Amino acid sequence: MTTMSQARPVAKAAQKPHKPKLDWAGWKFVGPFMVVFAFVLIAPVVYSIYLSLFKEQLIGGNQFVGLANYAQAFTDPKLWNALGRVVLFLIVQVPIMLVISLAAALALDSARLYLSSFFRIAIFLPYAVPAVVATLMWGFMYGTQFGLVRNINDWLGTHLAPLSSNWVLVAVGNINTWEFIGYNMLLFYAALRVIPVDLYEAAELDGAGTFRVIRSIKLPALRPAIVIGVIFSIIGSFQLFNEPNILRSLAPNAISTFFTPNMYAYNLSFSGQQYNYSATIAIIVGVLTAVIAFIVQLTGSRKEA
């Protein structure tokens, strides 16, 4: 009896399931990125939100004001002016840029373009030029006192002024388009190269022409890439800063300190010493950009489904 009573606990202990050991191998790989991500993105965003809840007072110094800065921003005509200008830039410039990029990608993929490798590199090359260098280069050509525009005015007797108040946004859009056509072209071209050859063979057997293949095969396959291109372009439009900020020295009367939301936040912070209100504008623009990009992504995903 004693032997049997001692064997029962041993049997129960043998049947007890062992808890699986935690595998930390994945976190060892992801950990360094998460640390950098926390310090580079999460910490600045949290600190910006913290700054936006305070305001520098003439009496009492920096005091907590809650959402007062946000209320002021929503009634700020300079911010609405800057946002309206960026939205206009987005509505006009982005479709033009994406259509040109799409046409270039379709031309390169058609296998009917001679020296396609040369044209692919040539179209992509402006993207490799830094934005500051590209803006300085175009600014030299836009100047009415020097450069290409002055030469054209002298030759033709015209009075072209790309950096005037009526045309400066077009000038900035032209620079931006020149810079990013190659990037979007490569994005679309990569999506075209992964289309199965069987679809083209089936279309050829059905007697489909070039435009029918583009409409029925290539464009549907390009939809995810187009959605990504639109999202990146939306983010880039709301981040517009380098081009107008550099051109401002050539056109101070046409480009104000609040030409874009980023310029407005930058000048408030570094010129006006209004760090709290600048952080507020940055948070508003960031949330607005994220919401619009999410709506575009959601719309594109529904159409794809």
Rank of each mutant, 00 (worst) to 15 (best):
residue 156 L to A: 15
residue 231 I to M: 07
residue 170 V to Y: 12
residue 230 V to S: 12
residue 253 N to M: 13
residue 217 I to Q: 00
residue 162 P to D: 15
residue 223 R to V: 14
residue 144 T to N: 13
residue 254 A to M: 02
residue 268 L to F: 09
residue 258 F to D: 15
residue 223 R to L: 08
residue 219 L to G: 04
residue 247 L to I: 09
residue 227 V to D: 13
residue 233 S to G: 01
residue 201 E to W: 03
residue 168 V to P: 01
residue 155 W to Q: 14
residue 216 S to H: 03
residue 192 L to K: 06
residue 228 I to P: 06
residue 183 Y to K: 06
residue 241 F to A: 01
residue 242 N to A: 13
residue 157 G to I: 06
residue 194 V to S: 10
residue 254 A to S: 14
residue 181 I to G: 06
residue 174 N to T: 05
residue 190 A to Y: 08
residue 170 V to T: 06
residue 199 L to E: 09
residue 178 W to E: 03
residue 272 G to D: 01
residue 162 P to Y: 12
residue 200 Y to L: 04
residue 266 Y to A: 10
residue 225 A to D: 12
residue 211 F to H: 10
residue 233 S to I: 00
residue 190 A to C: 04
residue 174 N to E: 09
residue 275 Y to S: 13
residue 233 S to N: 03
residue 265 A to Q: 12
residue 273 Q to D: 13
residue 148 L to S: 13
residue 173 G to H: 04
residue 267 N to D: 14
residue 158 T to Q: 14
residue 147 G to W: 05
residue 148 L to P: 04
residue 238 F to T: 11
residue 186 L to E: 04
residue 179 E to S: 04
residue 176 N to Y: 03
residue 261 P to Q: 07
residue 222 L to M: 12
residue 198 D to Q: 06
residue 274 Q to E: 13
residue 262 N to V: 08
residue 179 E to Q: 10
residue 264 Y to I: 12
residue 182 G to D: 07
residue 150 R to E: 14
residue 276 N to D: 09
residue 259 F to N: 00
residue 197 V to S: 05
residue 178 W to Q: 05
residue 248 R to Y: 05
residue 212 R to D: 01
residue 186 L to G: 02
residue 154 D to C: 11
residue 182 G to Q: 04
residue 165 S to D: 08
residue 186 L to R: 03
residue 217 I to H: 00
residue 203 A to S: 07
residue 166 N to L: 10
residue 265 A to S: 13
residue 174 N to D: 05
residue 209 G to M: 11
residue 182 G to H: 04
residue 186 L to F: 03
residue 147 G to Y: 07
residue 213 V to P: 00
residue 173 G to C: 11
residue 223 R to K: 14
residue 243 E to R: 00
residue 218 K to S: 10
residue 258 F to L: 08
residue 242 N to Q: 09
residue 182 G to M: 06
residue 218 K to E: 13
residue 250 L to M: 13
residue 172 V to W: 02
residue 149 V to F: 12
residue 206 D to S: 08
residue 187 L to M: 07
residue 179 E to K: 11
